[in-house]
Design a binder for these strands. Structure first.
Lengths: 171, 171
DNA sequence: GGCTGTATTCAAAAGTAACTGAAAGTTCCG
DNA sequence: CGGAACTTTCAGTTACTTTTGAATACAGCC
């Protein structure tokens, strides 16, 4: 496999993964492209590598910057901006977890807490079933949230050691 | 808050969460509806509760059955089918992880392995940068995959104890 | 077999999300 | 200040996804 072919295969796969997880496919592709590029790239270069328009490139680069996954730099004597991705994948994972926890997990936890305040006969089958499911869900989502908080805050070595032990203890 | 209001709030939130994670919004809503329903429901009941067409209800119920989250039953003397969700949220979480690992994580791991076979000067900055990122990614995604495999196979009590210890050790 | 009540399918329509490209905005330099 | 080089915005378009509903298939009963 040639390098260009391998890059393209990776970019397509990363785009597909992103879109299956609710991330704009092009945004994931731009991220993939920058992840495997040794140099920072200009908007022009990204546009032609992925065959996308200027507006599209700009929007998705801004979104990636917003997620904390990509930064801009200026090269001496050049006016145009160059973009590069955080290459440390552990840091990338932490950042993605941080954002998704904030954007998606927190709001749903909030709703799970709110709906516990349902009125009505606490003996009725309807209310009992509702509260039972909501409470179970709240426990599990809450536990997952606390675990992910640890992931986001923890040192990579400590975390990987711990994970490794869990995986092997159970093997 | 009245029960109907709370149910609706939960169904909307669950639908929104699903759609942010690449799950059809209606499928997540049907799942939410069945999760908090004390009795199994017919297609008619689901259609009217969510204001969706028969075709839509049928398709999403089948998808939920396919994911292993919902089952059918027949009531004595009735011709129509009734649907109910797995209420054990730990089992639901395991099932969702199982499916997403199979559908999405495995294919991307496969690609990460494949593209390591890139040809070309292993000294060139392009190839070096490409392989470095791919290998880091492969390590992290692989570790996550092995961890999730443990989650899927493990006993809920053991798992929650372990998670609890991790969360508190790091607090 | 034929009839009835239900489930399933799928082509067309509606709805949603993403993309384009050109116009407006910004920055920097002489 | 004027204008070149670039970035940002956004209305209109395109492409994709979801939904509908009517046709079809099926299962059970008489």
């Amino acid at each position: 496999m040639q390098l260009d072919e391998a890059k393209d295969k990776f970019i397509q796969a990363w785009g597909a993964l992103g879109s299956q997880w609710g991330i704009n496919r092009t945004m994931a592709q731009v991220h993939a492209l920058l992840l495997v590029s040794p140099e920072s790239m200009s908007a022009e270069e990204i546009m032609s590598a992925l065959n996308i328009s200027r507006g599209n490139a700009n929007m998705n680069l801004r979104a990636l910057i917003d997620w904390g996954l990509v930064s801009k730099e200026h090269k001496a004597g050049e006016r145009r901006e160059y973009f590069f991705a955080e290459k440390d994948i552990w840091a990338v994972a932490q950042q993605v977890i941080l954002e998704r926890r904030k954007r998606e997990l927190k709001p749903v936890l909030r709703v799970l807490e709110d709906v516990k305040a349902v009125e009505g006969d606490p003996e009725s089958a309807e209310v009992v079933a509702f509260l039972a499911s909501i409470e179970n869900l709240h426990n599990i989502v809450g536990q997952a949230d606390r675990f992910l908080e640890v992931v986001v805050k923890s040192d990579r070595n400590w975390f990987f050691d711990t994970l490794f032990k869990i995986v092997n203890r159970n093997a």
